[in-house]
Amino acid sequence: MRKVYLVGAGPGDPDLITVKGMKAIQKADVILYDRLINKELLDYKKSEAELVYCGKSPNNHSLTQEDINRLLCKFANQGKTVTRLKGGDPFIFGRGGEEAEELALKKIPFEIVPGISSGSAAPAYAGIPLTHRDYSSSVAFVSGVAKNDADAEEYWKHLAKSMDTLCIYMGVKQLPDICDKLIRHGRSSDTPIALVHWGTTKVQETVTGTLSNITQEAKHLKNPSMIIVGEVVRLREKLQWFEQLTLEEDSSAKAVVG
């Protein structure tokens, strides 16, 4: 049956795939998957399903977005069930909207299967609640990349004090500039900030600091990393459950081996 599923694969932990997302993988004739998905999810596929890698890393795209759109339409028009497997949620900085537009234009049936976004999952695994009655009543999910320098100034000016918590995607490369702009437009230099690298995975690493020192503290971190800015970051010291769980599991495994 000709149909395309635009599926959010979640933030990295394979257990965080939705049941509906898993079913879409299982029924697919063709799966187009991104770089940031957990490859364990591909174990759910049919043995005869075709896999197409659509990985994108900064400044290095194996396929352009136009190529991906074209392939989705091509496979669907061959009468195949197609699953487009995207990291996080397809409609939150996943360009799923662009793919859905193309499918709608070509009158190809499609479904959107939401996924857990790294913007909410990475902070949760780092022990950072995005809202809290004592610290934050508002949160914004924003891109660390503006269209141009002129837009960027106004962009960060608006965000600096309009929201209690900022969750910033794709901002590691621009981190020094982001911190500078937030301070310049009214955020205290002592505002807590955290970077969560490969959130929800076994190699998750979290670094905290303030707007004034995080660039130095987190200089070793690369993408993919979520940036969280706001007073809620202070709660991590009390709520960092995932690292403790990992240590306990490692200790248990060593005890069994021993």
Rank of each mutant, 00 (worst) to 15 (best):
N148F: 13
K80Q: 10
D13P: 04
N77L: 11
E243D: 14
V82M: 03
E153W: 11
C167L: 10
L235Q: 14
D134Y: 11
I68G: 03
E249K: 15
K46L: 03
E154M: 13
E217L: 14
D134L: 06
V4A: 02
S188Q: 13
E243Y: 11
E98V: 15
M1R: 14
A49V: 10
E48Q: 15
L166R: 07
A140D: 01
I108T: 10
H197M: 05
F75C: 12
E99L: 01
V233K: 05
E205T: 15
G230W: 00
P114T: 02
I25C: 08
V196W: 06
W241V: 09
I68L: 00
S212C: 07
D180K: 15
L245H: 09
S251M: 14
D13V: 01
T83V: 07
T215S: 10
S137P: 01
V4K: 01
H197A: 01
S62C: 10
L72V: 04
G115A: 11
V172S: 06
S162Y: 07
L71Y: 06
D29M: 08
R35Q: 14
W241P: 11
Q65Y: 04
T81I: 15
G79F: 04
P58Y: 13
I17K: 00
E101S: 14
M22L: 08
Y135F: 08
S162T: 08
L130W: 11
G97H: 05
A146S: 10
T64W: 11
T208C: 09
T246N: 13
L239P: 06
A146L: 03
R35H: 15
D164R: 08
A9F: 01
L36I: 00
K3F: 15
E102F: 11
A100C: 11
S251T: 14
G230I: 05
S117F: 07
D67A: 07
H197Q: 10
A152T: 05
M1W: 12
L175I: 12
P192H: 07
S47Q: 10
F110Q: 04
E40I: 06
A122T: 03
V207E: 02
P123C: 10
T206E: 00
L72D: 03
E102M: 12
D89N: 02
H220V: 03
S188V: 00
G8S: 02
N213W: 04
K39N: 09
P192M: 05
S136E: 03
E153L: 12
K27I: 13
A253H: 05
T64N: 14
D15I: 07
L41Y: 08
Y53F: 15
I68S: 01
R234G: 04
L41M: 11
H185G: 00
C179W: 09
D29Y: 11
I37F: 02
L195T: 05
Y33C: 04
G115S: 01
L32A: 12
S117L: 13
F141C: 12
L105P: 02
E154I: 10
E40F: 03
A100K: 01
G12R: 02
G186Q: 10
D164E: 11
A218S: 05
L211F: 00
G171H: 01
